[in-house]
């Protein structure tokens, strides 16, 4: 087992309104080496918070994230400060994820030299190699980020993450900010890199069609909890949770042109994380809710060896 997320909670108190944002509410997940876990969910589901916790930018309010049986984060102090985290992050916005005053070659070189990952004389060739791996030619290494396209910047971000030789790469909406014709390129690159280097990914997105394309296992999140977990084809072919079903139905499908299906599978909107409904957080929008759903939080229970659902109406 590579990474174990065990019953993690994250709460952000808001001082002015004396409320609490419940970003994560008891989430448990495992990521094994060489596997790609896809996390899909809409705004407020806590997917980006989870990414920040894993890389150590923040600490969980409760619960533990362990890395090969060592407690990675606990309490208020984060033990990875000034150390290279074994999980690296690729951000959504290619415009703010690179230092605008640092040439891209220097951006990669700094990772290697700051942590003495290579001998001095090998650093140059390593930088060139990393850029080449992500499809950036060597003669671009003296450019500044603003001289690169969005797709190229995202490639540099990926190279920077690779330079740290991480155990896990977290991709937080890595293609959402890119133009459609460039997205495919970056997705293909991610798939190629995984094959070539045996990388482990946590791929986070609101876009199920992207998550579906790259993930081995998909976790569907809703308001800080996992509501369904399974291999990618199980989740897509045989979704069990009513929220997963709605999410799949909501993807615009361009393979079938014609009159739109006007039936809306899911009414209402995601409640605010400051005020999460009691019981199953989804019951207020759920088409199959029964009175009991507002009383108990359903646990993620297996329905098959590889697929689990958190719904008391599905798992009976």
């Amino acid at each position: 087992m590579t990474l174990v997320i065990d019953n993690v909670f994250k709460k952000y108190p808001i001082r002015q309104s004396k409320t609490v944002v419940n970003a994560l509410n008891g989430i448990s997940l495992n990521i094994s080496k060489g596997q790609t876990l896809g996390i899909v969910g809409e705004s407020g589901c806590g997917k980006s918070t989870l990414a920040r916790l894993i890389v150590g930018l923040e600490s969980p309010t409760q619960g533990a994230i362990t890395w090969r049986d060592n407690v990675l984060l606990r309490g208020s102090k984060n033990q990875w400060r000034n150390h290279l985290s074994p999980a690296q992050l690729v951000f959504q916005d290619p415009y703010s994820s690179l230092n605008p005053r640092q040439r891209i070659g220097e951006c990669i070189r700094e990772v290697i030299s700051a942590h003495n990952l290579r001998k001095k004389e090998e650093i140059d060739s390593r930088v060139t190699e990393l850029l080449k791996v992500v499809g950036i030619s060597e003669d671009m290494k003296n450019r500044y980020p603003h001289q690169l396209s969005g797709g190229q910047r995202q490639r540099v971000s990926i190279a920077r993450a690779l330079a740290a030789e991480p155990e896990l790469i977290i991709l937080d909406e890595p293609v959402s900010a890119l133009d459609v014709s460039v997205r495919a390129d970056v997705m293909n690159l991610l798939v190629d890199l995984r094959k070539e280097f045996g990388l482990t990914y946590l791929f986070i997105s609101h876009d199920l069609s992207m998550v579906r394309h790259i993930s081995d296992v998909i976790a569907v999140m809703y308001l800080g909890r996992v509501v369904e977990l399974g291999t990618w084809d199980e989740v897509l072919d045989n979704p069990q949770h009513p929220y997963t079903k709605a999410l799949i139905a909501a993807i615009p499908d361009h393979s079938q042109v014609g009159q739109m299906d006007l039936t809306v599978s899911l009414e209402g909107e995601v409640p605010s994380p400051t005020n999460i409904p009691l019981g199953c957080a989804f019951h207020v929008r759920c088409p199959i809710a029964v009175p009991n759903c507002s009383k108990m939080i359903p646990q993620l229970l297996p329905i098959k060896s590889s697929q689990s659902v958190a719904c008391s109406e599905v798992v009976k």
């Binding site: 293909n188 897509l236 993807i251 361009h254 393979s255």
Partner: peptide, 23 residues
């Protein structure tokens, strides 16, 4: 452009067709 979109209802995960370069 059409080929570069993963089809939601498809179960294929072959390489996405891509357009080289930028506009």
């Amino acid at each position: 452009l059409l080929a570069s979109l993963p089809v939601a209802s498809s179960r294929s995960r072959s390489r996405l067709a891509s357009i080289p370069g930028v506009p």
